[in-house]
């Protein structure tokens, strides 16, 4: 088990390095990096000087190493738009995204397990068809569209919930009380629809597969109550479902760009969207790198937890 964790950690290093190369390359892939900085009427001398100050006169590998050393120390440079350090802006946005993605994953996980469990148990029946239908709809509906529809219904028409933002005072004044949680509900529900659909499908197929295994019959043959049998089924389904849930959390961390934009939620997705439109390359790099690292770390955690939950893998 320990060897496995160590190996798994080692595998992470090349993946993480690959990500940094890609993020670094973004500067050059998205056109001449100078064009965003240099004023159209700048003289050739001024351009040369700026190039030097940003380090663009060095060969690419050197530029990469310089950039990587700084990034590893948490220095992603300053935003081109407001000249503030990228890291500060990022650190303010990350908790908001974590909160939104975490709550959305929990909602998706809870409903996905219920729907998927019912569908797998009553496989082929009417309950299965309804739950599977929900699952497919959840995966297929574009969530920014759903977000707008929810805003129209619950914020504009019914006036039950606020449409956008994080409440008075923004993210600095956030508290876990109803006045603030109201703002979280619509974006979290919107964001939870995709993981809900995916977890529904995973749970359904896993439960159906486990129910077909002989040990379930054996559990019934030894007289266990229905609930006890279902507890065995849940324990057997747990590794697979947990893995899928972990990956979904990863997708939500990076994939909430559209939802955060629709709801004006001041998280990393919102930041990313803003940075793209303003061609704020350092900001873009910092955000993507951070989100990618989250994803890599989450994958690592999922793998380790999955191994630890399953005794067949833990003890070998």
């Amino acid at each position: 088990m320990l060897v496995y964790i160590l190996l798994r950690l080692l595998y992470t290093i090349p993946i993480a390095l690959g990500v940094t190369v890609f993020v670094f390359a973004l500067i050059h892939l998205s056109g001449d990096p100078m064009s965003a900085i240099v004023a159209p009427d700048a003289t050739a001398e001024m351009v040369e000087q700026l190039k030097k100050s940003y380090g663009f006169d060095q060969p690419l590998p050197i530029q990469y190493l310089l950039w990587l050393t700084k990034a590893l120390q948490g220095d992603f440079g300053n935003s081109i738009v407001n000249s503030r350090p990228v890291l500060d802006t990022l650190l303010a946005a990350v908790p908001n995204t974590l909160m939104l993605a975490g709550v959305a994953t929990l909602i998706g996980f809870a409903f996905g397990c219920i729907l998927g469990g019912l569908a797998g148990y009553y496989q082929g029946g009417i309950v299965d068809k309804i739950a599977t239908g929900f699952g497919i709809a959840g995966v297929s509906i574009p969530h920014y569209w759903l977000g707008m529809v929810l805003v129209i219904i619950f914020a504009v028409e019914l006036r039950w919930l606020p449409a956008t933002g994080m409440g008075a005072g923004g993210s600095d004044a956030w508290q876990w009380d109803w006045e603030h949680i109201r703002f979280l509900i619509l974006p979290a529900v919107t964001l939870s629809v995709i993981p809900c659909g995916i977890i529904t499908r995973t749970v359904r197929s896993t439960v159906a597969e486990i129910l077909n295994q002989e040990f379930v019959q054996a559990l019934r043959a030894k007289g266990l109550w229905h609930g006890q049998v279902m507890r065995h089924v849940a324990r057997n389904a747990a590794p697979t479902v947990l893995a899928v849930m972990g990956l979904q959390l990863g997708y939500l961390l990076g994939g909430s760009i559209l939802v955060e934009t629709v709801f004006n939620w001041p998280g990393t997705g919102y930041l990313l969207n803003d940075a793209i439109f303003r061609r704020d390359v350092p900001m873009l790099q910092g955000t993507i790198l951070l989100l990618a690292m989250f994803f890599v770390a989450l994958n690592l955690i999922v793998d380790i937890v999955q191994t630890w939950v399953d005794p067949r893998m833990r003890r070998s």
């Binding site: 002989e214 040990f215 019959q217 043959a221 030894k222 007289g223 065995h232 324990r235 067949r312």
Partner: peptide, 25 residues
């Protein structure tokens, strides 16, 4: 019926590798 199973009449299965729950001791 659930009291009866295992209590009065119990069953041995063909393949114990499949009939025992793999994730319980």
């Amino acid at each position: 019926m659930q009291d009866f199973r295992g209590g009065v009449a119990s069953m041995i299965f063909q393949d114990p590798g499949l009939a025992l729950d793999p994730v319980y001791r």
